[in-house]
Structures are given as structure tokens and as C-alpha cells.
Nucleic acid binder design. Sequence first.
DNA 1: TTTATATGAAACCATATGGTACTATGTCAA
DNA 2: TTGACATAGTACCATATGGTTTCATATAAA
Lengths: 106, 106
Amino acid sequence: MNRSDQNSFRALADPTRRDILRMLARDEMTIADVSSHFDMTRAAVKKHLTVLSDGGLITVEARGRERINRINPAGFAPVLSWLEFFDQFWDDRLSTLKTTIEKDKT
Amino acid sequence: MNRSDQNSFRALADPTRRDILRMLARDEMTIADVSSHFDMTRAAVKKHLTVLSDGGLITVEARGRERINRINPAGFAPVLSWLEFFDQFWDDRLSTLKTTIEKDKT
DNA sequence: TTTATATGAAACCATATGGTACTATGTCAA
DNA sequence: TTGACATAGTACCATATGGTTTCATATAAA
């Protein structure tokens, strides 16, 4: 089976990276921008951004001495596609699932 | 911020565990059943099942000396809910997931 | 040109992770 | 009861991961 989705799932496994994605969903940011939101070094944040980039969840564009990080919606496709596989088996239980999602929303 | 989704995201990060979930989507299985599909020891598979259980993605029921592992659709809610956050920014991209859920609601 | 800024990269560290082997316990079956 | 079977649990190992520090490089600004 194809394992091209491994990098995207791995990228989503870390809470810091998920937070970064939520930030980038609102606005593109430089590495320094992102770093300013976390209590860790810029080098650590840069590593996270590299993992996100490897997973295809963000794109990075060089602009002068800065690196513009942007979320990449298409990168989520492997994850969503994998999750959708289960729909064919959950016809019965899906209403429960849907209800749980609504309750879990913040 | 809420971090209750950490265990479920972590559970999905490993390819073996994702394969196990696909198997369990079709049928409940004992630990031995699951192990027979992988080239690794039963102990290793059991660890994966524990991680899946911690993440709420499966349930485990003791039946005699066996342990029946079943997929837990509700356990996917935190993941799907987290992904749906992005809908408000990507009217187009993530609509597939929403569509699938709505479709199966009937 | 000089200096400050933004990032890249490498070495290093502690802990987590995914695996093994071995032993123990509970349960089914003859 | 005895023996086989299914699982639990522990110790252990190699590598991955998430973090730091330090230094190098490219670009912007004075």
C-alpha cells in the first residue's frame, strides 16, 4: 500500500505543529513571526516548519532574507482521503459520530 | 487550549496503527488475529493496540482469555473536529469531508 | 561599507518510540 | 488435574524526536 500519507500524518502528530497550522490558516508568517508565539527557540520552530513542509501541509517561499510560510490546503488531502475510507463502513454508527463532533466543537 | 486530541493524533501517526484501524473497520479481531497480519511480534502489536486504545480509536473487551478489539467511530471525532476548524478559512478545500458526513447522516 | 537582522546548519542531549525476548498469569479443553 | 493457549508485563535495545547551543551566511538598513 502507498505510504505517501506518512509524512502528513506525522506532521499532524505534534501539538506545536497543529498550533502552527491554525496560525498559518489565518495569515502567512515568517519563521520569526511563528517563533514569537512559542516558548522555544527559533531553531526548534524552524524544525517544526520543516516537518510541516515535508508533510506538504505548508509551503515556504523565500522573500529576501525572510521565509514566508503559508498553509497548503492541498496537503491535507491525503489525510482526509484516508479518513474518508472509513465512511463506507460506518453507515450505522455515523450519526453517533456526527453528534460527537458537534459536541466536541469549541 | 484543549489538548485532549493529542492521543488520537499520536495514535494515527504510525502506519502500522493506521493499517490496524482499516482491518478493524471491517471486523473485530483478537490480538492474535491482528498479529497474524504483521511481520512483528505479538507484543509489538499489542503495544500498538494499547496506543490505539489510549487514543480512543478502538475499544477492547475481555472475552474469556481473548481480547476483542473493535474500532470506535466516536474516537475519530476529535480529529475530524480539529480538521473542520479549517473549513472557515477554506470554503472549498475541505468541503469533501463535510459532504461525506452530511450525506451519511440520513 | 558597516552593522543588524533573518535564516540555515551542525553538534549535541534527554526522552519517546517501536521493536525484541523472556516470564507470568488467567482460561479453555481433554 | 494437566497442559495448551491467549494475553499481560517487564526488561532491554536502537533509533527517532524535540529541544538546545553555537556558528555561518545572506540580505536589509544606516
